[in-house]
Every structure is written in structure tokens, then in C-alpha cells.
Simulated assay, not measured.
Amino acid sequence: MGKKPNKDEEISFESAIERLEVLVDSLEEGDIPLAELVEKYEEGSNLFQNCNRKLTNAELRIEQLRKQNEAVSTNLTDDSED
């Protein structure tokens, strides 16, 4: 099993997804003591929040780039009409 990152460590989106898959697989097996189950659930929740934040940031960045491209296209069109 992979190393669990500290809360302060930054984890890549891909690594977080991989870790979530491992956690889900282990939870689906079912033979986990309650304390470990709660610990894994908490870790999974934190990883999910991390992934969600990264996806939201990526969506915002893509939207910013799209708007910039539209602005450039508009300016180019306006300049060519002169």
C-alpha cells in the first residue's frame, strides 16, 4: 500500500484518485475494524475534497483561458474590419 500523505503535503490529482481507489477497494472488502474504517473514511473524504478543489480550479482556469481567447478573437476581427 502507498504512503499516506500528511495533511500539509500537496498531492497530485492523479495520486489522490489512485489512493481513493485503494481506499474504496479496501472498504468494499468489508473486514475492517471500526476504528480503521473511520480512519480510511476520513482520509477518503479529505482526498475527495482535495480532488474537488483541484477540479474546480482547473475549470475556472479553463474558463479564464476561453474568455481570453474570445477577447483575442474579437480584437482580431475588429482590427481586420478597419
Rank of each mutant, 00 (worst) to 15 (best):
A16G: 08
I11K: 01
Y41K: 13
Q68P: 03
A71I: 04
C51Q: 07
D25P: 01
T74P: 00
R53L: 02
E36V: 07
V22R: 04
Y41I: 15
N52L: 14
R61N: 08
V24R: 14
L34Y: 05
N69G: 15
K7Y: 07
Q49A: 11
N75H: 10
V72R: 14
D8R: 07
M1K: 12
T56E: 08
S80A: 15
E81F: 03
L60W: 04
E36M: 06
N57R: 12
E18Y: 07
E42P: 07
K7C: 02
E29G: 07
E9Q: 12
E28Y: 00
S15R: 07
R53G: 07
V38Q: 09
A35Q: 04
G30S: 04
L27D: 00
S80P: 08
E36D: 09
L65F: 10
N75K: 04
S12T: 13
Q64I: 05
R19L: 15
A35P: 01
E63C: 10
E81K: 09
E28A: 11
L34W: 06
E43P: 01
G30Q: 01
T74N: 04
L23K: 03
E39P: 01
Q49I: 05
K3H: 09
L27G: 03
S80H: 03
V24Q: 15
R66W: 02
V72Y: 07
N69I: 06
G44R: 02
E39N: 05
D25R: 07
G2N: 03
L76I: 10
K67S: 12
D8W: 06
D31I: 11
D31R: 05
N57L: 14
Q49L: 14
A35G: 03
A35W: 00
L65W: 04
R53H: 11
E43V: 11
Q49R: 14
V38E: 09
D78C: 00
L55Y: 11
G2A: 12
R53V: 03
L76H: 01
V24G: 00
K40A: 08
L65V: 11
L47I: 08
D8P: 00
E18L: 14
T74E: 13
E39C: 06
N69A: 12
L27H: 06
E63V: 10
D82R: 08
A71Y: 11
V22I: 06
R66K: 10
T56S: 13
N46I: 13
I32T: 06
P33E: 01
E42Y: 12
E36G: 02
S45R: 14
N69C: 15
N6R: 14
L37Q: 05
L34G: 02
G2Y: 09
D31G: 03
L27W: 05
K4V: 14
I32L: 12
P33G: 03
E29H: 01
G30R: 04
K7T: 13
S80F: 04
A35M: 02
R53N: 09
N46D: 13
E21F: 05
K3P: 08
V38T: 09
G30H: 00
G30W: 06
L55F: 10
L20M: 15
Q64E: 11
N57F: 10
S12K: 07
N6C: 09
K3R: 15
E29F: 00
M1I: 13
E29Q: 04
A71R: 05
E42A: 15
R61L: 14
K54Q: 08
E81R: 07
K54R: 14
S15M: 09
I32H: 01
T74F: 07
G30F: 02
N52S: 15
